[in-house]
């Protein structure tokens, strides 16, 4: 009995660990498909639409990477992962890249042997409550029952916040966003806490969205970004610079619509390098020279992706805030492409 259990574990581990480590880029090219770890369903960030097509802010970054590497934004397979399974899925090689509202932290970066290559959304943890609860600040939540997704950084922030403010709470740990919403709407918890962007996304799908408010306190820093396995630096570069290409495109005014026109007419040397008109930026990281152009053509620049999925005017209605370009007072800043 004891032996067979042990063997089972070892066998399972062996299967999990039995993947090639070097050369994710080669693997993706050979496979002809990018496998992207995605959310199980968070409106605006990553979820299948009515026709089963994945749409969202994080999803578009996956499509941009596929367009840059394979030249075709549709060649992506999305693997839904929960807060608990996401890092294991990445470590075991089940997915090539994880773009799933994952917070960049020290221990994930080091102990979990992952690499966070960029921050595509600067977020912070907030609280959502029903309006009729009569609460206007998170500090008034003494004694409240709080729904929280397990396996996330928010779990730890929550404990710290209530301790620092010397107030008490009862945690209700749930597995994913939809279960948390069900419990919150059923009144099984007074407040729901997760990243403020996630709260806005959840609220957008609620039938009575106007009856819920997001409290002003942001209790943590949550830099969310794409994650790759530690040690595969070339693949990390590909993901990182595809993302930066989208930022540079917004900064330079290159859009999905005008990318061909700009490529033909531009006099800006950085734009020329970005779109592969001059230089050999693409080949330097193992891509074609028009890789970034394909990415921009497929999904648009960072600003377009933001506006289309989660920006003002969509149901989620998030302001750019910290995620504005550095030229407009935000934190989104790409190193020079040269």
């Amino acid at each position: 009995m004891k032996k067979s259990v042990f063997l089972g574990t070892l066998a399972a581990t062996t299967v999990l660990a039995g993947v090639a480590f070097g050369g994710t880029l080669d693997d993706v090219k050979k496979r002809g498909e990018l496998i992207c770890g995605s959310n199980t369903g968070l409106t605006g960030f990553g979820m299948p639409d009515a026709n089963g097509n994945w749409v969202g802010f994080d999803v578009d970054l996956c499509r941009a990477i596929a367009a840059a590497v394979l030249g075709d934004a549709t060649k992506v397979k999305f693997v839904p992962t929960t807060g608990e399974t996401r890092f294991t899925a990445l470590q075991s090689g089940e997915v090539d890249v994880l773009v799933r509202n994952s917070t960049w932290t020290f221990s994930r970066d080091t102990e979990l042997a992952l690499d966070f290559v960029a921050v595509n959304y600067y977020d912070g943890q907030g609280f959502m409550v029903k309006k009729d609860l009569g609460v206007s600040s998170a500090k008034e939540l003494d004694g409240a029952t709080v729904c929280i997704q397990t396996g996330t950084t928010t779990e730890l922030n929550l404990a710290d916040f209530f301790k620092q403010n010397n107030i008490s709470y009862t945690p209700v740990t749930v597995a994913d966003d939809s279960e948390a919403q069900r419990q919150y709407l059923a009144g099984a918890c007074d407040a729901y806490t997760t990243d403020a962007s996630g709260l806005a996304a959840s609220r957008a799908t609620m039938p009575d969205a106007a009856n819920h408010i997001i409290l002003p306190e942001i209790i943590s820093k949550e830099p969310l970004g794409p994650v790759v396995r530690h040690g595969d630096n070339n693949w990390g570069d590909v993901v990182r610079w595809t993302y930066f290409a989208l930022l540079i495109a917004e900064e330079k005014g290159v859009t999905k619509a005008n990318v061909d026109e700009v490529a033909a007419s531009t006099a800006d040397e950085e734009v020329k390098r970005l779109l592969g008109v001059s230089g050999d930026m693409g080949p330097k990281i193992g891509l074609s020279n028009d890789a970034f152009k394909n990415a921009i053509k497929a999904v648009g620049n960072y600003g377009e992706i933001f506006a289309a999925n989660i920006g003002e005017g969509t149901t989620i209605n998030l302001a750019r805030g910290l995620n504005a370009l550095w030229t407009q007072g935000g934190l989104q800043y790409a190193p020079p492409l040269r």
């Binding site: 581990t13 480590f21 042997a113 779990e155 404990a159």
Partner: peptide
Amino acid sequence: LLNNVVQNLAARGKVFDYGFLWARAGYDI
């Protein structure tokens, strides 16, 4: 099987260690 586990753990840069049990948990039950 054991050798496989050890090698794969090493390849992922992980050490088999129960020291984490004595670290602060940081979450509530």
